[in-house]
Amino acid sequence: MRSLAARPDAKALGLAAVIGSTFFLGLAHGIGYPLTAVSFERWGAPGWLTGLAAGMPALAALVLLPFAPRLAFRIGLVPAMAGGCAIGLTGFILMPLMPSVEAWLVLRFMMGVGLLFPWLLGETWINAAAEEASRGRVLSLYTVALFGGYGAGPVLLGQIGTEGLQPFIVAGLALSLAVLPLVAAASLAPRIDGHAGGNPAAVAKLVPLGMSAALIAGVLEYAYIALLPSFASRLGLDEATGLGLVTAFLWGGVTLSFGFGWLADRMNRPKLMLMMLVAFPLVALVSGLATALPGAALAATFLLGGLACAFYTLGLAILGERLRPADLAPANAAFLVLYQVGTLAAPPVAGAAMDAVTPWGFLMAVIGFGLAGLATALMLYRIESRRKTA
């Protein structure tokens, strides 16, 4: 008799639970980042400290990820995910009780440690449970939930305000709601053991092309998210137009994700990745040069967001396609390390380029990022092709 988690309907329910949980996890992140930035500004903190606070979760992930898979599977899949949410909830409880820059830097790092576990293990669960024929679409739904929650956070924060206890209560409630479907579906979680606590770096070498997609996604997403308003301002566009371009980029990532997931289930995934890397610099050029035509700029930026975010989904799909379930957790840890490296490295480089060649240095930088990604992916694709024929 098959185990409960092995039944197709049980797998679907388990996937639905993780995807639903991911939305609330994204919502908590989407509240936490702008709430921290606005509070630091209110307290008169310098910009570099605000940036440091924004980078604390990424720093926590980089520190912990090499050890996270082994630790998580000693605790158990669902207990580790729920415990991580509980650490994040504790952070939101302590923030209004400790209203200082120094305390919040520590709390943001602590919350980054906690919220790493539902992020890492949720992706592992989904990739282990998804059927190969629908893997791209399932992962795209995960991406929609994550970025949809992330995008909804600032909108909700705009409605409830950033002062008083209400934003902390709402963020804590979001993390509580993230735990409920996980606990309800605990018996449906896939069994992942064996080498689940293995070396992330060693497993990453098995899928270099899929790993490169994580770095590319982090670089391309955050270069735009961090600097697109500044680029628009230096072009002489008003603030509303700049924010509109960021909104178009983010919602392009959410809206077009399923379409790229559908393509990933019907095409050779490495070849699709190469095609996307060819398209990205071209669309970036159009979006930058079309800023005098608001409608064209919004449409091109919308497509650009879809392309940038799709690299994350596609990279995860390549991992799930090529690795055993036992290897998914350490591979996903390495994947997230590369993604975080991209998110941390790209904005300063693109910002420096924009300062050096105002304003077009930004556009030159992101096109350069895309071309570098294409060259890297082509090299890795050829290496993998030679391995298969050897």
Rank of each mutant, 00 (worst) to 15 (best):
G84H: 05
L146G: 07
G122A: 10
G148H: 06
G320C: 06
G151R: 00
Y222Q: 14
A284T: 06
V138W: 03
R108K: 04
A6V: 00
C85Y: 00
V286Q: 04
W43V: 02
A189R: 03
R382S: 12
M273Y: 12
L316D: 09
K11Q: 15
P46T: 02
Y150Q: 15
L289Q: 11
G47R: 10
A279L: 14
P57V: 01
G14E: 14
W360L: 12
R191I: 09
A223M: 07
T358M: 13
T358H: 09
P281V: 01
E123N: 15
P66R: 07
A196K: 00
F67V: 09
L363M: 13
K205I: 01
A375N: 03
V203W: 05
A10E: 11
A356C: 04
S21T: 01
L289V: 07
A214M: 05
R137P: 02
T247F: 14
L274N: 07
E221N: 14
G76L: 10
V254E: 14
L215E: 08
R382I: 02
L314S: 06
T313N: 15
L146H: 00
A377D: 05
A58S: 15
L235Y: 01
W119F: 13
V357L: 15
L188D: 10
W251C: 11
G14K: 05
R382W: 11
G148Y: 04
L336K: 02
F67S: 15
I19Y: 09
V101L: 12
L156W: 03
L303G: 02
A174C: 09
V101K: 03
F231E: 08
A226V: 07
P359R: 03
G76I: 08
G114M: 06
A217D: 11
P347N: 11
P79G: 12
A300C: 07
V203A: 13
P190I: 04
T162M: 08
L15A: 14
V179H: 00
G198Q: 06
A226P: 01
L177M: 14
A189Q: 09
I31Y: 09
L274R: 09
R324E: 15
T376R: 12
A129Q: 10
S233L: 10
Y142S: 08
D193W: 00
P347W: 07
I216R: 03
A145R: 04
L165V: 09
L157E: 13
L180Q: 04
R324V: 08
P270V: 10
A345F: 12
A213E: 03
R137D: 11
P8C: 09
F147L: 15
L25I: 11
